[in-house]
Design a binder for these strands. Sequence first.
DNA 1: TCCTAATCAGAGTATTTTATCTTATTTAAA
DNA 2: TTTAAATAAGATAAAATACTCTGATTAGGA
Lengths: 146, 146
Amino acid sequence: MSLLFSRQCEYALQAVSYLALHPRGRLVSIRELTKRLKIPYHFLGKILQGLVQKRILISHKGHSGGFALALPPEDISFYDIIKTIDGTQFKHQCAMGFSECSSESPCAIHDQWEKSRNELYKLFSGRNLAEMANAMNKPGYRTLKL
Amino acid sequence: MSLLFSRQCEYALQAVSYLALHPRGRLVSIRELTKRLKIPYHFLGKILQGLVQKRILISHKGHSGGFALALPPEDISFYDIIKTIDGTQFKHQCAMGFSECSSESPCAIHDQWEKSRNELYKLFSGRNLAEMANAMNKPGYRTLKL
DNA sequence: TCCTAATCAGAGTATTTTATCTTATTTAAA
DNA sequence: TTTAAATAAGATAAAATACTCTGATTAGGA
């Protein structure tokens, strides 16, 4: 089971991060992405297709084609990806699964969870892909490098 | 899609919270629980069966049977429930889905996510059901009351 | 021009999760 | 002692998610 996001969404975040490490406009093939990220080939194809339709990525068919960010990395946040794939439920959902949970009618852990959730929301929406890429290029980071 | 935990786990947390509101040892039927919590009858039956096998609950068959906490509510935390149903992945898992993510080989958001995750872990493991029940009995709380 | 390496698109399959059905068993109360 | 109200347990169904396959289209390069 995945934790915060669906598999699809996790894969999308990974792929988009990888694209952000490349110079603007440079096309990266599904082949390269799936090899590097260990994601099933056709599954990633589908996911990226979706992001093209949502105008987050662009793609070129044919020989030496591939995918690239549609916008400058400064203008894309993780949350932009998350909401196109998993929707916006992240901002509202109760941790215990109560549908009617709110500050007027809270569950036993409503306030604390809301606090953590807001911090996470800030993390995902407040930083753009350029900042992410910078962080990944610093010496300590090793998970995703060109 | 559920967020932090599986549906099963959410239902279990709801049910166990409801049991904690009752006097120690008082049996509550599946019927009452599912009515009160709007959980599918047989599905909750299965879930509670599992918690009985894990010795978190006790059950009595037959007329006026039902379920109750196996231990004093002071000795049960949300995390006790979570780990029997969803396992312990919550404590380790990377938000971006990288399997090799760690402080030695972190992803772009590793540190911040770890911080939030630890706070959440404290929330779920550091408070017991008695404290939860107290919180739920205070005036402001309305989601779950007897 | 023709071949090959790509994505595109949609259908199809597999797996996991969620939910239901059915029958058996237990037990308190009438 | 009978009956009704419970849980136990296994089988099955439905839905959601994850993944695969295939054929079409596109476009660069030999």
